[in-house]
Amino acid sequence: MNVLYLNLTRCIYCRACEVACEREHDGISRVAVTLVDPRQPVPVSCRHCEKHPCLEACPETAIEAAPGGAIIIHTRKCISCGLCVIACPFGAIELDAGGKIAEKCDLCEHRQRDGRLPACLLTCPARCIEYGPLDDILAVARTKPGATFVAAMGETGTVVTLPDRSVPGV
């Protein structure tokens, strides 16, 4: 069970992950770096939730919870109804530019198949994104400054460390 870890104290809003994701996925980025507050960017992508409303919403069998923990959209089965887009609590799924296919993070399935890690975490200049077994990730996250929680539905999924952004001074 491998999960993503977003150490948000480190995110610098450079959007390298978006450009990398876009390159890896035929010109469509499945991560959107979003300012959740004027000083807090978050690379928002699929949290690969343990309890996955997108999968439950899909009228076909286009969304699968893969054994490794990844939630995968089988695009050939997608009927473009958009119900998963509404069901996702995090805005991580969107229909592609033509409105045809639901697109979201697949944890770089194609890269992992030949032993390469997802592009977003390799490219992140600030080392904000990590990836590994949930327990290892939680052990690392607890050593970081800030509050740590599973930012997904259920007990497993993407882990986040959230900083305290109060800046004394002027």
Binding site: T34, P89, G91, T148, A152, G154
Partner: peptide
């Protein structure tokens, strides 16, 4: 209990951390 069903994708991303905290309080894994 799922207010986000009435939010657009962009606004869901902007409040994604708050949504996550509603779902999974920090204490659960600390």
């Amino acid at each position: 209990s799922m207010p986000w069903l009435r939010w657009c994708a962009r606004c869901k991303r902007e409040s994604s951390l708050a949504t996550a905290q509603v779902l999974q309080p920090a204490e659960a894994h600390l």
